[in-house]
Simulated scan of single mutants.
Amino acid sequence: MLTKPRTVALSLSTAYCALGIGFVMQAFMEPESPKFAQGDIQFDDITPTSSAAPMPRLRLPKMPAEARAPGQQTGPEGLQTAAANMGDMTNPAGTAQPNCRIDMDAVPAPGAMVDLSLSAPCLGGETVVLHHHGMMVTETLSPEGTLQASLPALNDRAVFVAAFDNGEGAVALTEVAGLDLMDRVVVQWEGDMGLELHAREFGADYFQPGHVWHDASGDMAAVAEGESGFMLRLGDTSVPNALVAEVYTYPTASTSKQGTVLMTVEAEVTAQNCGRDIMAQTIELHHGTKPRVQDVTFALPDCSAVGEFLVLKNTVEDLTIASN
């Protein structure tokens, strides 16, 4: 699952991928890797992950290896973008090969969002893992090899990596404005875990106005006016063992409201997760602070409880909102 060793490996692989396809990312990366918070979250009805017990690891897609055309120099003087341009080469017989170049663009959007456009003409219908500053989601390309996705930024110097199972990939960079004006909470997991992120704004009851979750996700117009938050579910859940994330955003700096947004992670007990310890990871950003990351394990009841819903208390912090 989403373990600390995997996160370290991801950081190294992401940097390696970026170098392999010719991007210089130094100006966009944090000066040091994010550190996981320890001991500062109280868990009720939750079993904290034990550092003494081995944790399952997600299958990290292979990142692109170094590639160079015959005759290219090695070392800094010869750093080339061969990995990105292999699809433009012709075969020895001189017959042009299909253009299999992988391209990805990132464009800032309102609400501290980023619109991604991915093109991989020779990988139509394939799955891809999108990485962004610790958040990871599985998506599926169209039969033509394209993907349009909107992701919430987790850093104002935003780096996005698309990684395919065959080792190919692409990187896109952009600057995002307004992230320091938001509260943003991420819960991510692998597979059909039955998890949901819920936000109940300013005393809202379940399934009433102000209860924001993936079936009542809010809208961007209300966010722009500072009236409410919005929820996104990311990841193609039709893919087995997909990486999935739910992200809640509240426009803290532009709201005229004050009070508390109650945040809960909830789990439906299903035939797939009953009697199991299921793992997830949370990422929290509070109006400009550095991301706070936590690995958590939930012990679910046995299969006699299938159909019940559990509130996993104190997994993420409630949001305290002051009027502006």
Rank of each mutant, 00 (worst) to 15 (best):
M63R: 13
M63F: 08
P64Y: 14
P64F: 15
A65H: 05
A65D: 10
E66V: 14
E66D: 14
E66L: 15
E66M: 12
A67P: 13
A67I: 02
A67W: 08
A67T: 01
R68P: 07
A69Y: 07
A69G: 01
G71P: 08
Q72V: 04
Q72T: 02
Q72H: 07
Q72K: 04
Q72S: 06
Q72W: 08
Q73W: 11
Q73M: 10
Q73N: 11
Q73R: 12
T74S: 09
T74N: 08
G75W: 09
P76C: 13
P76H: 14
P76W: 14
P76K: 15
E77T: 00
E77I: 01
E77A: 10
G78F: 07
G78V: 01
G78W: 08
L79Y: 06
L79T: 01
Q80R: 14
Q80C: 11
T81F: 09
A82I: 08
A82N: 14
A83E: 12
A84V: 01
N85G: 13
N85C: 13
N85A: 14
N85V: 02
N85F: 09
M86I: 09
M86R: 13
G87C: 03
G87N: 08
G87I: 00
D88G: 12
D88F: 13
D88S: 15
M89Q: 12
T90E: 10
T90W: 06
T90I: 02
N91Y: 00
N91Q: 05
P92N: 13
P92A: 07
P92F: 04
A93V: 04
A93S: 11
A93M: 10
G94R: 03
G94L: 03
G94N: 07
A96I: 01
A96W: 01
Q97R: 10
Q97Y: 07
N99E: 09
C100N: 07
C100Y: 03
C100Q: 04
R101Y: 09
R101Q: 15
I102C: 06
I102R: 09
I102E: 14
D103W: 00
D103P: 04
D103Y: 02
D103Q: 09
D103M: 05
M104T: 02
D105W: 15
A106V: 00
A106D: 12
V107N: 07
V107P: 03
V107E: 09
P108Q: 03
A109P: 00
A109C: 05
A109K: 01
P110N: 05
P110M: 02
P110L: 05
G111A: 07
A112N: 03
A112P: 00
M113H: 08
M113R: 10
M113L: 11
V114C: 07
D115N: 08
L116G: 10
L116K: 07
L116P: 11
S117C: 11
S117E: 11
L118E: 06
L118M: 05
S119A: 09
S119D: 13
S119W: 03
A120K: 08
C122W: 03
G124R: 06
G125M: 04
G125A: 09
E126A: 10
E126L: 04
E126H: 04
T127G: 10
T127Y: 06
T127N: 13
T127D: 11
T127I: 00
V128D: 11
V129A: 09
V129W: 02
V129D: 13
L130G: 06
L130T: 04
L130I: 05
H131Q: 14
H131E: 14
H132I: 04
H133G: 07
G134I: 00
G134M: 01
G134F: 00
M135Y: 08
M135V: 06
M135S: 12
M136P: 14
